[in-house]
Simulated assay, not measured.
Amino acid sequence: MSASTLRIQLLNDQLRAFPFPPRGEMVLTRGVADLSGDDLSEVLRRVRTFDAFTEHNDPHGEHDLGSFDYDGVRYFWKVDYYDRDKKYGSPNPADPAVTCRVLTVMRADEY
């Protein structure tokens, strides 16, 4: 794995653990935002602690996508890389100086 990929992986893991600027932003879809406090806390805890990465679900080794089941519902989370103005893709996702990471958490049925 390249140094750039390892750096992206680290930055994505940090974003999931602490999704606040300057590391990036977090977006919740309506189905997630409408969860009760305890359920929302548990879904976000599972996003933060997700570590079931395999070659199948993480072929590029960037830790940028995951899924899990909670209370009979399938959830996805995804990290996307934008330029600092969030108009275009990042020119270099390994460089936080030119990248805004956006972590989206959604129910599978909202996809």
Rank of each mutant, 00 (worst) to 15 (best):
D58P: 05
H56N: 12
L11W: 04
Y70E: 07
D80H: 07
R30W: 09
T104N: 09
E25I: 03
S67P: 02
V43F: 01
T49Q: 15
V79A: 08
E25W: 10
F50N: 10
T104A: 09
F53S: 00
V27M: 07
V79S: 09
V105Y: 08
W77P: 02
S4F: 04
E55Q: 12
M1R: 11
R23S: 08
H56W: 09
S4E: 14
E25A: 06
H63D: 10
D80R: 15
G66M: 08
G31Q: 13
Y70S: 08
P93I: 05
L15Q: 01
D95P: 10
Y111W: 13
F53P: 05
P96W: 09
Y111A: 09
A3I: 10
T5Q: 10
H63R: 14
Y82E: 03
L44M: 15
R46G: 07
P91K: 08
Q14W: 08
D34Y: 01
P59C: 01
T99I: 03
L40S: 06
D39G: 00
P21Y: 10
M1W: 12
S41F: 06
P93K: 10
R84P: 14
V79L: 09
G66N: 07
G72H: 11
V105P: 07
T99H: 10
L35W: 11
D85E: 13
E55I: 01
F76Q: 02
R46F: 06
M106K: 14
G89A: 15
W77N: 02
E42P: 03
K86D: 11
P21C: 05
V105N: 05
F50I: 07
S41K: 09
F76N: 09
F68I: 04
T5M: 03
W77F: 14
L40N: 04
Y75K: 10
Y88A: 15
R16W: 02
L6S: 11
K87V: 12
Q9H: 11
P96H: 08
L6N: 14
F50A: 08
D83W: 10
L11R: 00
S41L: 07
V98E: 15
M26P: 06
V43S: 04
M26S: 02
D13N: 11
N57S: 03
L11P: 01
T49P: 06
D71W: 00
H63K: 11
D80C: 09
L35Y: 08
D83Y: 09
F53M: 00
D39S: 03
F20T: 04
R16Y: 04
S36M: 04
R7F: 02
H60L: 11
P22Q: 06
Y75S: 02
K78Q: 12
A94F: 14
V98G: 13
V32H: 12
R45W: 04
V105T: 05
L65F: 15
N12K: 02
Y70I: 01
